[in-house]
């Protein structure tokens, strides 16, 4: 005759989880915690931010008035710049952005027609460009070189040809060019 089960033991066994399955569940939870920690550290401790909605504009009138009527690079401090970019099928205006090495550049981008993307290769700058909405990101270009920017949202038959270039030049060269 067997003894009646205690209160604790039957509950534990009633879960019916295999030890391997239990360990896999533990590992999955640990993995999620690691992912969450990594993203939290990057976002809140190191300051990585995703692009935010800066404001709204009327796509029909952006070329008539406001900063997007004259897109391009503006120097607002010795090593700080603003860039206003208009996306349209199938080009970016401006198609070339020249900034000195070490410049902190705030990029404002909007669309005149359909949804586009704006990604600068080899950087973390990557934004959705929605008509009527201004997307904004700030990035410091520490390396000299050319960084193509591309449309990352299929926008029509000329999508593959929609690109521009950020040229990061040495400060001396930037001063000489009088850019």
């Amino acid at each position: 005759m067997t003894a009646p089960p205690t209160d604790a033991q039957p509950q534990k066994e009633s879960m019916g989880i295999d030890p391997y399955e239990r360990n896999w569940m533990r590992f999955s939870i640990v993995l999620l915690v690691v992912f969450l920690t990594a993203v939290t550290v990057a976002g809140f401790a190191m300051g990585f931010q995703v692009p935010g909605e800066e404001g709204r504009v009327d796509p029909a009138t952006i070329t008539e008035a406001g900063p997007f009527a004259n897109p391009g690079v503006r120097q607002i401090a010795p090593s700080e710049f603003e860039v206003y970019v208009v996306s349209r099928t199938f080009n970016f205006d401006p198609a070339e952005i020249v900034v000195p090495q070490g410049a902190t550049v705030t990029i404002y981008v909007t669309s005149q027609d359909v949804q586009h993307g704006f990604k600068i290769t080899d950087t973390n700058v990557n934004m959705q460009v929605v008509p009527g909405q201004v997307s904004k990101l700030t990035y410091t270009f520490d390396r000299v070189g050319e960084f193509p920017y591309l449309c990352t949202e299929y926008c029509g038959i000329g999508h593959a040809a929609m690109f521009g270039t950020v040229k990061v030049v040495p400060p001396s060269e930037f001063e000489e060019a009088g850019a």
Partner: peptide, 23 residues
């Protein structure tokens, strides 16, 4: 599978950090 996840995810995270902060 676990080793692949760690290697791929880790390498992407390192690339993210090495490319610099966007704000």
């Amino acid at each position: 599978f676990v080793a692949t996840i760690i290697l791929l995810w880790g390498s992407v995270y390192v690339i993210l950090l090495s490319r610099g902060v966007t704000s």
